Computed example of a mutant assay.
Amino acid sequence: MNEKVAIIGGGIVGASAAYYLSSLPGGSQISVTLYDDGAGQATKAAAGIISPWLSKRRNQRWYQLAKDGATTLMTLARQANLATDIYHQTGTIITRTNEKDLHDLYVLAQERQADAPDMGDVELLSAKEVQQRMPLLTNPQPGIFVSGGARIDGGALVTELLAQAQRVNLTVKHERVNLDGDGNLQFPTGKQHFDHVIIAAGPWLNDLLKPLGIKAAVRPQKGQLIELSVPDYSTQENMPALMPEGERDFIPLGYGKLIVGATHDDEAGFNLTATPEATQDLLNSAKQFADYLTADNVTKVKVGTRAYSTDFSPFFGRLKSHPQLLVASGLGASGLTTGPLIGRLLAGTLIYGGTPDWSNYEKPLSDYLS
């Protein structure tokens, strides 16, 4: 008889888990139901840059997870035949204004290449060379070009992964669910038992685990980004994404569209209202590099809620107290990079069993759950 799996949360982890439960060998024998009411989902509002290799974060577990996550996305893009408006390996440019900082970053890039061949080519660019590759810019800065970097549309990626999984073994239900004290899904009409449940509900994890007497060390963070209309250069579809020092990410999408963001608001909690202050902050950041931009260029504003752990690191795995339950949360701003790998790891352990050792990617789950 087919095993029944429920996934709570249709963001980057939940959608990736659903996709891999449908595509990994043996997964098609599993019946999967995903529940998500769509409110506040960070991935739906997210567009981002996949380029973790030059991060200065000292957390080596996070770096290993992000590095392998970038590789997972490259493979996923080929396997799922993702369109370039979902995932596009355009390369990324990371800028520095100080000459010594730029040199140090270039040295770091060369060192990281040895352990991360998926970085691709690394080039040191002058401000003029940066502008040649990104003619949208009027005030370029010198930087490092990494050819393996990519831009990604989170909402479009989730939609595509779920659509492909639905053709195999996935049912999607747009509703909110709760758990009872035994880990069963609770509905107004009664409870329903699943053999396994993946809880990938971001900052809402605490609400779901409360009936089990478990508290998760996660908090919500509001993020806002803006989409702007810009000149449609013939090369824009293949323009690199820009990670400027001290400013917001600058992501050309092609066809005269530009994404700038995102903000990090720790005080707003689950508030999903777009604010003029955040929009102006993002616009001011964009104008540092493209001074012709005005409020009239803003065509869209998106808001979502991320989950952050106490040490800013993702955590995921099976609950010892309730072995049928698996959780994932705390991805923060790196969710588009790390989420697909986490989803694949969770799907793999459901299909193949065992107790995999993920200590190279995360601290013990008990560090985040009490």
Rank of each mutant, 00 (worst) to 15 (best):
Y19V: 02
F289H: 08
A42T: 01
V13S: 03
I259P: 00
I226N: 02
G348K: 10
N81P: 00
L76T: 05
A268C: 05
G254A: 01
E267C: 08
T279H: 02
L82M: 10
K191F: 08
R344W: 05
Y292Q: 13
A83D: 11
P140S: 03
L369N: 03
T305A: 14
G183I: 05
L369C: 11
Q324P: 00
Q29V: 06
S313A: 14
G332Q: 04
Q79P: 01
H193G: 10
Y35C: 09
I12A: 07
L350M: 12
Y292G: 14
K320M: 15
L346N: 04
L102M: 05
N284S: 11
N178A: 13
S16C: 09
E247N: 04
L54M: 10
T138Q: 12
P323A: 09
E129K: 06
R306S: 02
L336S: 06
A295M: 12
N2W: 12
S321Y: 08
T273N: 11
Q41H: 06
S366N: 13
K4E: 15
F289I: 05
M243G: 02
Q132W: 03
G335K: 04
N297R: 06
K210V: 02
L209C: 00
G148F: 08
A46Y: 04
K257T: 09
A17G: 09
Y35A: 14
N184K: 10
P340L: 11
Q224W: 07
P276K: 10
